[in-house]
Design a protein around this nucleic acid. Structure first.
Length: 115
DNA sequence: CCAGTGACGGCTA
DNA sequence: TTAGCCGCCACTG
């Protein structure tokens, strides 16, 4: 059994991302903080990079702190990050999520739901 | 092994 | 308010 800490972290990221409701988005930092590694937001991006080949993980619902689609380069041209979000009625203009505060979802909300 | 690179974000000037 | 710095750490050449 190889207990690689970062592998577990990646797996946890995948699980959290799958819980983001359609039509909502969260941030790299919010996921990192929820998993107890507040200063490792960059690693969330790495984890999503691996998730790229797993279509059931909605990586397009993760944006940066400002609501910008900084990870758009990692999505196919045929179905871009922006298009995936639009399909869920999330407004995007110039890579910027509109009404970001309203669309933002935090993993912290899970505490309420699971109780 | 070492240096450079990032799907980030907090802090400082 | 904006721009730059730097801590973070897995991965690559």
């Amino acid at each position: 059994m190889s207990h690689n800490p970062h592998k577990d972290f990646f797996k946890n990221v995948h699980e959290v991302v799958q819980l983001i409701p359609p039509g909502r988005v969260t941030t790299y930092g919010a996921i990192a903080a929820y998993l107890g590694l507040k200063s490792s937001a960059r690693m969330v991006g790495w984890a999503l990079n691996e998730a790229k080949h797993q279509s059931h993980i909605p990586a397009h619902r993760v944006v940066n702190r400002q609501g910008l689609l900084t990870g758009k380069q990692h999505f196919s041209v045929s179905l871009s990050m922006e298009e995936r979000l639009r399909q869920e009625r999330v407004q995007v203009i110039n890579n910027q999520i509109q009404q970001f505060e309203k669309v933002f979802w935090s993993p912290e909300e899970l505490e309420v739901v699971t109780e």
